[in-house]
Design a protein around this nucleic acid. Structure first.
Lengths: 131, 131
DNA sequence: GCGATAGTACTACCTTGGTAGTTCAAGAGT
DNA sequence: ACTCTTGAACTACCAAGGTAGTACTATCGC
């Protein structure tokens, strides 16, 4: 067993790490060059930067790779939803003392939503109440 | 003018920084020893750790201090709501591509809320629609 | 007046994320 | 067979957050 770092910390992803994960989540798996290509426009990084980051991420346990010819094909080891859940929870704890309602209220009050979206949310709440 | 770091980055607070800010927000202002005392239980840090962090935070522009006798009294230079807004926005952008509705839906779906809280949220939405 | 104490200043170290150059080897094309 | 290219390995840096020891000094209690 390769003693991966702490389970709890596993979902703490930096900005670039998240961007890379997004590519992997969408592609299922991808070679370094693919990830590099996917991020080229928005970030313009050196290919080695992507490669290095991937190595660090593998050490951390959030991705894994297999070899195909002489290239590395990476795939996610944590799901997008797990990452979302835990990053949101963390912010919720840090900023709202874990209070989900306070968090939602904040979003309603301070982050713009148009009428249509409010409608959608009402529906979502109603549905949740339903069960 | 002491050339404080970038306005945009100003609201990116680390864990300890946030904890310290919380103390300052609640107290209005506080000496190092007070902050230390307030965090002693939950964190058990050395007093110097708190002091050092405060210095870094002042350099960054998120707090300021005045002298009283030979102690430093610190006070916040950014409001809790500003920090909340910008940290939440950041997460929203990073995890939900800036989509507030998606963010709220996620909270509703994945982070527990009891019936009373749902009720309260419905009210909040209704009120927001009202105007 | 003087020693103990409380407080800040300075320095140092570690970790993580981010960025990238340089080196080396495998393989593709001619 | 030999060169060009493509990929990974290794190494190096930097910044920021976090943590704390040590040094120095103003002041307080006696």
């Amino acid at each position: 067993m390769e003693s991966q770092p702490n389970e709890a910390t596993k979902h703490r992803l930096g900005d670039l790490q998240l961007a890379i994960m997004r590519v992997l989540w969408h592609h299922g798996e991808a070679a370094v060059a693919d990830v590099y290509e996917a991020l080229r426009e928005e970030r313009g990084l050196a290919p080695t930067t992507v490669a290095t980051m991937l190595v660090k991420m593998e050490k951390k346990g959030v991705v894994s790779h297999r070899t195909e010819g002489r290239k590395f094909i990476y795939r996610p080891q944590v799901s997008e939803s797990a990452v979302r859940r835990s990053m949101v929870s963390e912010i919720k704890d840090r900023l709202f003392q874990g209070n989900t309602t306070a968090f939602v209220s904040h979003l309603l009050a301070e982050h713009d939503l148009d009428a249509t979206e409010l409608q959608r949310l009402k529906a979502a709440i109603a549905e949740k109440e339903g069960r």
